[in-house]
Write a protein that binds this DNA or RNA. Structure first.
Lengths: 343, 343
DNA sequence: GTGAAAGCGCTAACAT
DNA sequence: ATGTTAGCGCTTTCAC
């Protein structure tokens, strides 16, 4: 019985051949024992696995990838990791993907479409599949990338690429109905980035729904989809003489509330505020924010599941597009407009 | 001049040999033209690069890794991506690492030390280096992992592993001095996870500093380091009859404020609240939160820089440990305690 | 049931 | 300056 030195200090990694030697078998047998245990006789299998254990052998991923033609890793590209809307998305995708034994590459585009394309292209060569979250790149680029590697698009519909998107309609209709029921007749929409799919969808739905309810909608902006954007928007909303504002997202709704508080305009008594997304902090503010909730976790799970199923499929399917519903969460930033209040 | 088909549809990727053939040179020349352009004659170089371009050749990463013995990717492991304290950390690390042409693997431990070890072990075999953010694993495990791959630890000091940690002292001293100056003499500390390095450090510093200022410190908890923890803690702080509370972090401070608001206790008039971390939302609340700021971006940058320098070093250095200072950010949740106020 | 051998795509001596 | 060769560590036919 030979004495094989333990993996200690800084020596170079154990290869499959070392294991093979130490178990008195060939490399192929070790490989089989690890990948197709049923193909090797129980006796040898145990001997091999014991050596694997003892030597602390871990297969070299690069070698494995090269031989197999698959990397066992996926990529996720998001516009802004630090955005409280995307962070949970990343978290859920990561955990799902892990469960399926894939590692996850993460990249942040800093909201820049060009960077987005660049990152996606770079990643496409080192992953088995890609999730593009809220991509802003043109459809053409999207197709280019999808031609290189399996791709799933989240938070945007696409006809050429499998996607998980959102139907803002239900949530927006509920929000408008809610505000209408409270008595508001003149409202503002603080729009977000004009190029974004989300903003276009939301704006369209707000316009149509307000019209059908006989609510006058003042469209303001575009503003950056951040606290700062809402902070600026608040003054314009006030100047426009509306009694309620629909913010592009929760962050900007927070900005609105902060500015309103600065100017001693009480929420919801003197101004109602409705957010969008239902990020975690929306429920932590005082007063807690009424907002159109997006089921991010569900979107993230569905995106991961879709990509994984794409990878599992042997026969290529045609692009599936799924749309998830939104809904209104009523908290304390919406109320009866001042003029209507009994005093 | 031969007609080489464009990369269209679903064909298999272009290899270096295809480029070589199409340029009428050997594979090594293509490799050199790409990696050490100065080693190949300008004429051929251009011809090669033209073919690379035309064929859309992208080197296979796995093959490259295998040959080179390096993966050009790094790993980052955090306790909770969705936590507003860690999200910016991830963002900054990602961007730094990208700049150095590394891709980044991300994993989330869900605050579980066992998962942490598992993930770190798994990642160690597919990266050139690892950043462990706020690790909870025992020092022994840390060393095991550091023996396999270069590791940098963030938000925790270690003697055996290079680390970027925080000196909570300055910020805490400023916070206590501030609160003391306002007239508070009995305060509470809402402690976080008892096992965490951060909590131990903060508790110790708060205790020592309060003592030196003659402030009576009531230690409550432990609470989960979340909104919910603070929400619970608020009642206990009120029962303890303190006039100011130091929350373990900003999230729990938000919980405190929310509960206080529920119970109609005004902040800061009837209770002062001090957070910790200075996450982005801390400045977005009404009133904005007074908090001990942690320079996360700096920590993240330093961690990435340290790891990159470790990888660049030819000669192994001994573990460097850097400590970054914290400081108090005074906003509007701290004020003169009620009893002292002129009425 | 197991071993020998070839090859995944790339880089790096070593020749020339 | 460029081509030839070997090899990174693994999987996988193909023999036996």
């Amino acid at each position: 019985m030979e004495d094989v030195t333990e993996v200690s200090g800084g020596a170079r990694p154990v290869t499959i051949h070392m294991v093979a030697a130490s178990a008195g078998v060939s490399a192929s047998t070790v490989s089989r024992a690890l990948n197709f245990p049923e193909l090797v006789k129980p006796g040898t299998r145990e001997r091999v696995l014991a050596c694997v254990e003892r030597l602390g052998y871990q297969p070299n991923r690069a070698a494995r990838s090269l031989a197999l033609g698959r990397t066992a890793s996926l990529g996720l590209i998001v516009p802004d990791i630090a955005n409280p809307f995307f962070a949970p998305f990343v978290k859920v995708v990561q955990s799902r993907v892990r469960e399926a034994n894939y590692a996850l590459f993460l990249a942040d585009t800093d909201e820049d479409p060009a960077t987005e394309v660049e990152l996606a292209l770079a990643m496409s060569q080192q992953v088995d599949g890609l999730i593009l979250c809220s991509p802003r790149m043109p459809g053409r680029k999207l197709r280019t990338i999808a031609a290189k590697t399996p791709v799933v698009v989240a938070n945007r519909v696409s006809r050429s690429v499998p996607s998980i998107a959102l139907d803002f309609g239900p949530g927006i209709r509920q929000a408008v109905a809610h505000v209408h029921a409270l008595g508001h007749r003149r409202c503002a929409f603080l729009s977000g980035p004009s190029g974004s799919w989300s903003n276009q969808q939301r704006l369209r739905a707000f316009k149509a729904t307000c019209e059908s309810y006989g609510i006058e909608l003042v469209v303001l902006g575009p503003y950056e989809p951040q606290f700062s954007g809402g902070y600026r928007g608040a003054d314009e909303a006030l100047a426009a003489g509306v009694t309620a504002v629909f913010a592009f997202n929760d962050l900007s709704a927070l900005g609105v509330m902060s500015r309103l508080s600065d100017r001693n305009v009480r929420v919801p008594d003197e101004m109602s505020v409705v957010g969008f997304d239902d990020v975690e902090v929306a429920s932590m503010t005082s007063p807690p924010l009424t907002t159109v909730a997006i089921p991010v976790d569900t979107v993230a799970k569905a995106s991961a599941a879709l990509l994984l199923s794409l990878l599992a499929e042997t026969t290529p399917q045609r692009p599936a597009a799924q749309e998830l519903a939104t809904r209104l969460v009523i908290r304390n930033t919406t109320g009866v407009p001042k003029e209507d209040q009994q005093s």
